[in-house]
């Protein structure tokens, strides 16, 4: 209904990798849409890996963790894998707290204003 909560369906497939551009806010509302889109594509095409690109994402809650874990389980069952890239400060903090980094490789944003390890 309202245009500001609509998730931009931004994905691309290169080789057997599905790239998903995660929206600005990853909550229950947007996570369900992304999961449906991703699962549809994995069912139709031969996809070995899903890469979630968090470049644009400034908000993430437990629904985002559930979405990542769900895709991880699905891809693992198919012999594939899942990665997250370009995680900013806030997303990094949430992913760190959740412990999901022990299961899914997460790449932090490089060259940002605040690179955590420095």
């Amino acid at each position: 209904m309202s245009s500001n909560t609509k998730v931009q369906g931004r994905q691309k497939i290169t080789d057997k990798t599905l790239w998903i551009s995660v929206p600005k806010e990853l909550d229950h509302h947007s996570a369900e849409q992304i999961s449906q889109e991703a699962d549809g594509l994995v069912r139709q095409k031969d996809i070995r890996e899903i890469v979630f690109d968090f470049s644009d994402t400034v908000f993430c809650d437990s629904s985002g963790i559930g979405m990542l874990m769900g895709r991880y389980k699905m891809m693992k069952a198919l012999g594939g894998n899942v990665r997250a890239v370009q995680a900013g400060e806030r997303v990094g903090k949430i992913l760190m707290l959740s412990g999901i980094m022990k299961i899914i490789p997460v790449e932090k944003k490089q060259g940002g204003m605040q690179d955590e390890k420095e």
């Binding site: 809650d61 437990s62 963790i65 559930g66 874990m69 769900g70 707290l97 959740s98």
Partner: peptide
Amino acid sequence: ELERSGMGFLFMEA
């Protein structure tokens, strides 16, 4: 089954 992972209260408390 709804892909919940039991992190909600953990985040609220954190």
